[in-house]
Design a protein around this nucleic acid. Sequence first.
DNA 1: TTCAATCTAAGACTTGAGGCGGAGAAAGAT
DNA 2: ATCTTTCTCCGCCTCAAGTCTTAGATTGAA
Lengths: 207, 207
Amino acid sequence: MNRPIKVLVVDDHDMVRMGLVTYLSVEEDMEVVGEACDGAEAIDKAGKTFPDVILMDLLMEKMNGIEATKVLAKTNVKIIVLTSYIDDEMLFPVLEAGAFSYLLKTSSADEIAQAIRKAANGEPTFQGQVTQKMFRHMHNKPKHDELTNREHEVLCLIGKGKTNKEISEELFIGIKTVKTHVSHILAKLEIEDRTQAAIYANKNHLV
Amino acid sequence: MNRPIKVLVVDDHDMVRMGLVTYLSVEEDMEVVGEACDGAEAIDKAGKTFPDVILMDLLMEKMNGIEATKVLAKTNVKIIVLTSYIDDEMLFPVLEAGAFSYLLKTSSADEIAQAIRKAANGEPTFQGQVTQKMFRHMHNKPKHDELTNREHEVLCLIGKGKTNKEISEELFIGIKTVKTHVSHILAKLEIEDRTQAAIYANKNHLV
DNA sequence: TTCAATCTAAGACTTGAGGCGGAGAAAGAT
DNA sequence: ATCTTTCTCCGCCTCAAGTCTTAGATTGAA
C-alpha cells in the first residue's frame, strides 16, 4: 500500500464529524487531514490540505454542499456526498455539480470506508435507491426543468402566495413582464392558474 | 461528584453514535452504558442497562423515536430528543410522548453534554426556536379550527387547485355560495386570496 | 321560545389574472 | 453574420375572483 488516502470531512454537525474522524482514524490506509463545518470553510481547507477525497454533507448553514461541490469538483478531488435522506431536489443538482459518490448517513462506518477507498481508486459508489432515482430522472424529468431561471424565480414567489404586483416589485420588473412569465409557466407546467402553480411549487419543494 | 451519569445512545446512524460515544467518553461525569439503532433495541437496552438519560434520534427505520419515547417515558429515565431539524409534525407529538429535552443535531458536543447533565438533574433543555414554537402552539392553535365543516371542505378543494365553479359543481351548491365560503375562509385564515389558501391547505396537510 | 351559528344564495361592484399578439434588446451558439 | 433563447414590455380583451350587503332556512343550544 502506498501513502494513506487524505480525507477532508465536511459537516456542520459536531458529532457527525467526530464520529467520522474517530472511525477513519482506526483505518490504516486513510487519514483525516482536515474538518470543515460549511462549504466556504471546506473550500478553504481543501486549498491547504489537498485531500484526495472529501466527505461532504449537503445541508449546512453558510454555503451549502452543492455550491461547495461546484467549486471543488473543478479540482481532481473526489467528493462523496453524505446526506441524511434522498431528496430529489438535492440529488441531481449535486451530481451535476460534480459529486462523485452519494451515500446516506445511515451507512455503516465500514460502508463509508469502502466508498472512500473506491473513490480514491476512481470508482463511484451510489447507495441503493439512488441508482433507481437516477434512472427515473433520466426518463421522466420534472416538468419544471423546462422553466427558465426567471420563470423559476417567479414560480417560487407564486409558491409563497405573492401577487403579480408583489412579484414585480420584488424582482424590479413590470407587472406585464410578470404576467408574461406566469403565462409561460402555466403553459410549461400544463396547469390552469396560479393557484395550481402555487400547489405545484410547494409539492415539489421549490419554495 | 457522585456516580457517573449513565447514558444510552439511540441513533440509526453509525457515525452519529460514534461521534457521541467518542465525545462523551472524555467527559468524566458521564458514561455511555449502551447504544441502540432503533426504538425496539432502545427499549431492550434500557431494560438491561438502566440509563439515567437517553439520547434519542427521532427518525429511525424500525420503530421510530416517538413510539420508543412513549414506552420509555413511563420509567424515570430522562429522554433527550436529538434531531436534525425542528419539524412541527414531530416536535409536539414527541413532547406529549414524554420527551424531556429537545436538541438539534447542529448542537456542539459541549451543548449536548450540558443538556445531559441538566437532564440528570431534572432540568429540561429546549433549543432556540423550540420554546417559541411551543408558545405559539399553546396560544395559537391552528387557525383553521375556526372553520366550519363546509368551509373546511371548500378549503380542501381550493388546496387541490379547483376553481369556484368546479367547487360549486362538486358540492352541488351555487357559485355565489362558494364565493361566500371563500370570503369567510380568507377572513378567518387572515390571508388575501385563494392562492394563499391553497398553500395553507397544503402546508397544513388538509388536502 | 328565543338566540346564535351555519349553509344557502342574490345583486352590484372592483380588480387581479390570464390569453393573444406583437416587439425590442442582449447574449450565446453555430 | 445569423439564428435562438431569454428577458423585457405594450395594449386589448375577457372572465374569474373577491368585497359588501342582505336575507331566508335549518338546527341546536340556552
